[in-house]
Amino acid sequence: MKDTSNINPLENEAIYIMREVAAQFEKPVLLFSGGKDSITLVRLAQKAFYPAKIPFPLMHIDTGHNFPETIEFRDRLVKELGLELIVRNVQDSIDDGKVKEESGRYASRNQLQTTTLLDAIEEFKFDACIGGARRDEEKARAKERIFSVRDDFGQWDERNQRPELFDMLNGNIELGQNVRVFPISNWTELDVWSYIQKEEIEIPSIYFAHTRATFLRDGLIWSADDAVVYRDEEEEVVERIVRFRTVGDMSCTAAVLSEASDIVSVVQEIRDSSISERGARIDDKRSEAAMEKRKQQGYF
């Protein structure tokens, strides 16, 4: 038998955090988007509780503008692992008049997710929401805690955050508050990809190179799906070989030109690449302080 001396400290830290969530909270939930980070979280949760099942459900806030490949993948994963999945739809929040659909060139449902998420947290009385955000993604996230307390309105007060010392996580909260938990806070994009490779974790096909009808705008490549992504008539549709580095709402996730068709070449590409992951997300480009503002409003 072997020993665990050759450990991955990031993986062990994340497993520890998963167990703290299960122990310290009554009703945790794992927020699942179908993206690589949340898929990694599912594997870490499996490891944390094996041979028992993951002791909390998954929840997907569905914008209705997801890549179909992501939804297929989600449903298959949940079935294979015997997990409980809750889906709440942004479309319902629109139909109820709680949020208004954006219009125009940069219309996206990404921001609208916040309302649907907060409503779902209230509906199920979730006290801890596990998410796949990483501190390396964006400057405002670099300050995020592992246990991040939100008030009744889901708001984040960056000036009043709990200090986190050593390994100790303080999950004490008041009724109505909830905690956002980020087990892979300390991972970088490359750490996630290397982990997916090493663990042979299956991910949706859109992360790998494929041929897609696309158009160019602001130097970024967009999926030409007229039902979801706004396109001017003069924005010409061209088939390109692309892949996605991040999988969010179709209307705000740009593709990159890539021939990387398997995990080995994707990891190599990330290693060599010189554009940050969020560079392909138009929602952050809106202004320098974009992420911080959305976070204060309760965005993940």
Binding site: D3, T4, I7, E11, E13, K47, Y50, P51
Partner: peptide, 19 residues
């Protein structure tokens, strides 16, 4: 026994999250 996920190990080193 010491388990790390679905593997059994002989020794759990410092900083490892085991069962």
């Amino acid at each position: 026994e010491i388990h790390f996920y679905d593997k059994k190990v002989q020794t759990a080193s410092r900083r490892s999250s085991v069962l």
